[in-house]
Design a protein around this nucleic acid. Structure first.
Length: 480
RNA sequence: CGGGGCGUAGCGCAGUCUGGUUUAGCGCACCUGCUUUGGGAGCAGGGGGUCGAAGGUUCGAAUCCUUUCGCCCCGACCA
């Protein structure tokens, strides 16, 4: 048992903060709502970035950078967009020692500036599609910040594309939604439900919003990534027009999609336990740590350490990276050394001691299950690869089983209320309500519609609230 | 923005009601040494704070008064 981490069952939010602190992922910044992402946390982000970026490139996107400051007038151009973002915008009113004529918003998202630029760049159908992504920071003034989940400034990626036809833009929106789903499932080991947002949960200015929803280990939902079909809303506000093959002027159809550092919060809350962080091998900064252990300093440093280093080199070569570390903290006792890696979520620990040396084996200890076993020297490398794959798969399966076990069906509002208040988790129900109905449900139960799962897109039934037919199967939950 | 709480060492706290006997204390962490060492050791020694800030009352203030700044929790709000 970790002594510096509040048990999850005792106080979930405190547990979450303790895990972050113990793993040295982040710290509070001097400005309220802002956080410092420490090297370990940032390294996880770099890994997530690398996985996403590769997928973006594979689907034909390129990276660019747009400015941090956005003229306030830009945000005003799309009616719903202003309304949605005005309250959380930070404004720069002074610069160069003078008050500015027009305040600049610190970007809360870049649809507007990018729309403005696209209108200049796009003239002809030959210029389309435009498929650009940017990695950057954004600012949304939050009244109730939480590390990684909701901070005033955060890092993300925002893709912005422009297309000639609605069909193509819709295809892009769903394509990127599925890129997200794939990366979440395969790399972050997060089982997510990909689907459409209901009207009340839509992005301000979007025609349709899609999301990947994950369940945290307290059974609350977390939106891990979103993809928006913006129709011609922004194209009209920013005059993004092109001449089609017949010479007529048409408005483009645009999309935008994003994943932020919030996804790190999702990883933490999905996989970790009372001992601290647990990371899926594929995004872990350190996948394997090797600990030479001996009570005799000479043996430890002159016999075991060289062996450990040699093994680390081979493993790094085999795993293709710098993800294997040798622990040389000989001044610490073994227990302390174990815990430091346990709390940082290192997936696999290899212990190399005198007993192992004599037996010609290496001791393996899995972070996810705590399981220990000895492996013959000759088999260490393939066994490491196999174990890491097992851990990755186990984390995903474990999370998926948990989610499925905490997903329930409701046919009536009474049943719905009872499940939300007594069991929590996800509730699947047919829903055909309006945004006002969504507000009512939220006020009465605390739950909100999370998404209409893509996998059940064709299913319709009778609405649990209004009784209307042709309601769509919708997932509800309390959410972060 | 409404309700509640809190600012004393890196972290967590006691001391504040009943000003002076505290050169401001404790636990963890940190430093040194010895013994330990395969899931968080023990002993000994040691460094570090001027008590969020400003002003006031007093012979004397971490303790009382005024102002101010900041943070946390609950609520409202929120991609």
């Amino acid at each position: 048992m970790a002594r510096n981490i509040t048990p999850r069952s005792e106080n979930y939010s405190q547990w979450y903060l303790d895990v972050i602190k113990a793993a040295e992922l982040a710290d509070y910044a001097p400005v309220r709502g802002c956080m410092v992402i420490r090297p370990t946390g940032y390294s996880i982000w770099e890994n997530i970035q690398a996985k996403l970026d590769l997928e973006f490139k594979k689907t034909g996107h390129v990276n660019a950078y747009f400015p941090l400051l956005i003229p306030n007038s830009f945000l005003q151009k799309e009616a719903e967009h202003v309304e949605g973002f005005a309250p959380e915008c930070a404004m720069v009113t002074h610069a160069g020692g003078e008050e500015l004529e027009e305040p600049f918003a610190v970007r809360p998202t870049s649809e507007t500036v990018i729309g403005h630029m696209y209108s200049k760049w796009i003239q002809s159908w030959r210029d389309l599609p435009v498929l650009i992504n940017q990695w950057c920071n954004v600012m949304r003034w939050e009244k109730r910040p939480r590390l990684f989940l909701r901070t005033s400034e955060f890092l993300w990626q925002e893709g912005h594309t422009a297309h000639a036809t609605e069909a193509e833009a819709r295809e892009e929106t769903l394509k990127m939604l599925n890129v997200y789903r794939k990366v979440f499932e395969n790399e972050l080991a997060l089982p997510v439900i990909a689907g459409e947002k209901t009207a009340g949960e839509r992005f301000p200015g979007a025609v349709d919003t899609y999301t990947c929803e994950a369940m945290m280990s307290d059974t609350k939902a977390l939106q891990a990534g979103t993809s928006h079909f913006l129709g011609q809303n922004f194209a009209k506000a920013f005059e993004i027009q092109f001449q089609n093959k017949s010479g007529e002027l048409e408005y483009c159809y645009t999309t935008s999609w994003g994943v932020s550092t919030r996804s790190i919060g999702a990883v933490i809350m999905t996989h970790s336990d009372d001992d601290g962080l647990i990371l899926p091998p594929r995004i872990a900064p350190v996948k394997v740590v090797i600990l030479p252990i001996s009570r005799d300093e000479n043996t430890a440093e002159n016999i075991l350490l060289p062996k450990a280093k040699e093994l680390a080199e081979k493993l790094n070569a085999a795993l293709g990276g710098l993800c294997v570390k040798v622990d040389t903290e000989f001044h610490m006792r073994p227990g302390d050394r174990f815990f430091s890696h346990i709390q940082k979520g290192v997936p696999l620990r290899l212990e190399l001691g005198e007993k192992d040396l004599q037996a010609g084996t290496v001791r393996f200890v899995r972070r996810d299950t705590g399981e220990k076993f000895d492996v013959n020297n000759a088999n260490v490398i393939p066994e490491v690869t196999k174990t890491l794959d097992d851990i990755q798969a186990n984390l995903f399966t474990r999370a998926k089983n948990f989610r499925d076990a905490n997903t329930h069906d409701a046919e009536t509002y009474d049943e719905f209320k009872q499940i939300i208040s007594e069991k929590g988790g996800f509730v699947r129900a047919y829903f055909a309500g309006t945004p006002d109905d969504e507000v009512r449900i939220r006020e009465e139960t605390g739950a909100t519609p999370r998404c209409i799962p893509e996998s059940d897109a064709g299913k319709t039934g009778k609405c649990f609230l209004t009784g209307n037919n042709n309601a769509r199967l919708t997932i509800f939950a309390k959410a972060y």
